[in-house]
Amino acid sequence: MKANSKVCLRKDTRAQVGIGTLIIFIAMVLVAAVAAAVLIQTSGVLQQKAQATGKQSTQEVSSNLMIKSIDGVRAKTGTDMAGNISLLKLNVGLNVGSSPVDVNQVVVSITDGTTTNNLIYANNDKTYDAKMGGFPAANASANLKELLTNSATPGVNGKYFFTAEKIRDEDGSFTQEKPVMNTGDLVTLYISTVAAGDVGDTTVGSVTTGGSMGDSGLVIEPRTTVSLVLTPEAGAATVAEFVTPSSYGIRENVQLYP
């Protein structure tokens, strides 16, 4: 028998040493640190953009005005009533879950099929570099009278502005100067539709005009198709369209929508 043979392995315990190796190691650490910093910064920026986009998308979806009803008021002198609607009263609320809406930034577009008026709130001085002439008055009724009767820069108030009055406002967020609507609030938007032939009438509802109303350029006579678009600062626009009755008869107040 052969004797058991022993196998010996040489151990090499030496490693790479020197300044060159150290430099390579430090460079690898620095590259890894820079890459990590870039990734962290990029992820932070993307997160912020995603949050902002999500917030804006939610606001666009949730901030919705809802027109509950529209009534028309005919001007009159004594018992003699105008043949056209002189004032529209829009009862407006917010959809469930809606974000607050600043009425000061709402644009109301109204057309009778011939003339289109783009209206802003009476206290908005950004679009035309001036508020509605006579605003702010003491209360909503006084501002409504200013809307119907007075003219200033940029022209007849009824062609450029609308006014509003709160019906229900539990938290007190709605004022004439700062009209902010929250969920549950209900307000009336007033839109002048005085026709040229009716400017001499003396009253519109409870407002005494003294026969000096301003021509809105609109003519809402019987069988007129009227389109309204309410566009808030954020959120979907609200559209309402209706056709006026074939005759107003002897009615001073006419329900037009729904």
Results as ranks from 00 to 15, higher is better:
N104F: 02
T79Y: 11
N84C: 13
Q105P: 01
T79S: 15
G83W: 06
T79N: 13
G93W: 02
D102K: 07
I110F: 07
L90E: 06
D125C: 03
L88Y: 08
K126C: 10
V96C: 00
N91A: 14
L88N: 12
V96A: 00
S109P: 01
N91Q: 12
G97Q: 02
L94P: 05
L87W: 06
P100M: 08
G93P: 02
Q105D: 15
S86A: 15
V107A: 06
A122S: 11
P100A: 05
I110Y: 05
I85C: 07
I110S: 05
N117Y: 07
D80C: 00
L90P: 10
L88C: 09
I85F: 13
N95I: 03
V106D: 08
L119N: 08
G83R: 10
N95G: 12
N104V: 02
N91Y: 15
G97N: 01
I85K: 10
V96T: 02
V92W: 08
L90D: 07
G97L: 00
T114F: 10
V106K: 09
T115W: 07
V107L: 07
N124F: 00
D80R: 09
V101W: 01
L94V: 07
V108Q: 04
M81L: 09
M81P: 00
G97I: 01
G83A: 14
